[in-house]
Nucleic acid binder design. Structure first.
Lengths: 147, 147
DNA sequence: GTTTATGCAAATATTTTGCAACGTT
DNA sequence: AACGTTGCAAAATATTTGCATAAAC
């Protein structure tokens, strides 16, 4: 099932409506894999397809997509909330971020080693883990070589 | 060396000055271990000791402490940046967070399993990792039992 | 005495909300 | 036809900045 079909189904289940605006916003996010767009970025991209849209609709839709777990949010400590499609590989695993402290580049990684960690934490703390967000800060290959 | 002594030394090295306000802000953070205070929370606590302080000074000092790596920031997706002392155990390991999706409680954990992960990522991607932030979302023991 | 820091107020910037008009089911 | 959604503008919120005064070195 595509993201869009999934979205329609989730909306229907909740008695909510599919609209042009909602469709375009999810479409734009689908067209920007591995990017980390701010609400403003998304607003600008959506306006190319639907110039009359208001930014309030963008915010409301992003909140909705986030509640439906179709998108994830990311905080890069610069005062913007950033958005990206969740579970790009359909495995249910979220991807995580490598943030270069020199050039600011953000790479993605997916990693199953974290599952050992989850298990260990569940045993130790009694906490049942559902999801996680991981950010690694360091220097990317290029910047590392320049240092 | 205490946090306060460390702070004074770092300030001196940078040609900056130790002030009553800066001292009190670090003191307040030291008195609230494992809490996740917003700038406003800290402002209120500091005002009990120094009523004339302005919130701008609190923000400026938190930014400074953050740059000096004496404190860490935490984003709980509620629109506030939260602050806590870094490296509570002096091991240089940062602690991480378990966030209960039911009651909102935030627990801490420290985990060395992540070091395997860092190593693996460094080999795979060429990224040199310096620090990381991990948030685990799930249900705490109490909430899990009530479900 | 020089330079950095503070407090206040105003400015910025992001996100949210109220409401009348509109679109979807 | 009923109800959810949109766009606009205004409001709310968190954080930053300019500047004259005060404090630290």
């Amino acid at each position: 099932m595509t993201n869009m079909e999934h979205f329609k189904e989730l909306l229907k289940n909740k008695g909510l409506k599919m609209t042009t605006q909602r469709g375009i916003i999810l479409e734009v996010l689908s067209e920007c894999p591995n990017q980390h767009l701010t609400a403003e970025d998304i607003y600008e991209l959506v306006r190319k397809k639907q110039p009359e849209i208001g930014i309030a609709t963008v915010y409301r839709t992003l909140q909705l997509l986030s509640e439906l777990e179709l998108i994830d949010t990311l905080d890069l400590d610069d005062g913007f909330v950033r958005y990206e499609l969740a579970g790009t590989d359909g495995s249910g695993h979220h991807h995580h971020h490598l943030i270069c402290m020199s050039c600011g580049k953000v790479l993605e990684f997916e990693e199953d080693l974290l599952e050992n960690l989850e298990e260990k934490i569940e045993l130790t703390t009694g906490f049942k883990i559902y999801n996680h967000k991981v950010k690694m800060y360091g220097y990317c290959k290029d910047c590392k070589e320049k240092l």
